[in-house]
Amino acid sequence: MTRLLTFLAIGLMSLMLFITTSGLPMLFDPNSPAATHVSPRYIEKSREETGSPNFVTAVLADYRGYDTLGETTVIFTAGIAAVLLLRAARKHSDCLPGGDEE
């Protein structure tokens, strides 16, 4: 029953998504908002402002460098999470104290 309702919700959602694609800009349109609002600055100025001819690197490491710090932190988090789960578990009752031992 719950599954049926969930499938119904997914179906409705897909339908809505298909109908509302008409609100999106046309494919590969050079005049779409995404291509005309923020990004021209990156293409025009990144060489003189950041010294990097690779615009993606300029955006990644300089204009939005703070995002990349977050991204590196995500990798670090995943690394220590995997180590905590796989290696640092206790031998007998593998949980933090206060968890549910079996």
Binding site: V74, T77, A81, L85, S93, C95, D100, E101, E102
Partner: peptide, 16 residues
């Protein structure tokens, strides 16, 4: 995503 990943790992460390 940083907070979610940290939360998944912290929750998972509570046992089976």
């Amino acid at each position: 995503e940083i907070s979610s990943l940290a939360a998944y790992a912290l929750i998972a460390s509570g046992g089976h």
